[in-house]
Amino acid sequence: MKFFFFLFLAGSCGLLRAQTNSPVPKPPEQEIGLHSDHFYYDGKARQLVYYDNVVATNSQGQLACERLTIMLPPEGSANSHLTNVVAETNVVIDFLKNGETNHITSDKAIYDYGVVNAATNETITFTGHARGENARGWMTGEPLVWDNIANRFTGTDFKTILKVAPSSGNGTNAGPFDLLK
């Protein structure tokens, strides 16, 4: 899946990947438009907070929520990569992938990025009635976790469910988390 608003945000302030063996060409830039009723910047907490009717759009999709918090990297940090972005309350993400509309909803979505022992961890965790859906089916979980390094969804709770629509053509061999991949 190539659209994730959080990941676009994360890329806005620095390196996309911490680990690489060869020079990475500079990726093309795009712009994200973000509307909200209100905003505050807390310099001490190093937070940018957009709240009430938050809608972010780019060429591939849209994210809507009631509160979006961007934690800025520590002051003087050598690495400007964002480590934490949180969307809260009525989180809705719609995006196109291969001409197919995908729809994710949850109460909260948390983007986390970190490098521990030279290993990069980059995830988005959807909690609270988390559900992903497209024409082929849907899945739920508590939480649903998008692992950006492994490039896949996982559900880490037994409440995770998948139903594949009869017309999907995936048959019974479809992996439960191939959906939305």
Binding site: L9, P27, G33, D37, H38
Partner: peptide
């Protein structure tokens, strides 16, 4: 409030 964020295409 309107914000434009320039970012890399991921």
């Amino acid at each position: 409030v309107y914000t434009v964020i320039k970012t890399s295409v991921w």
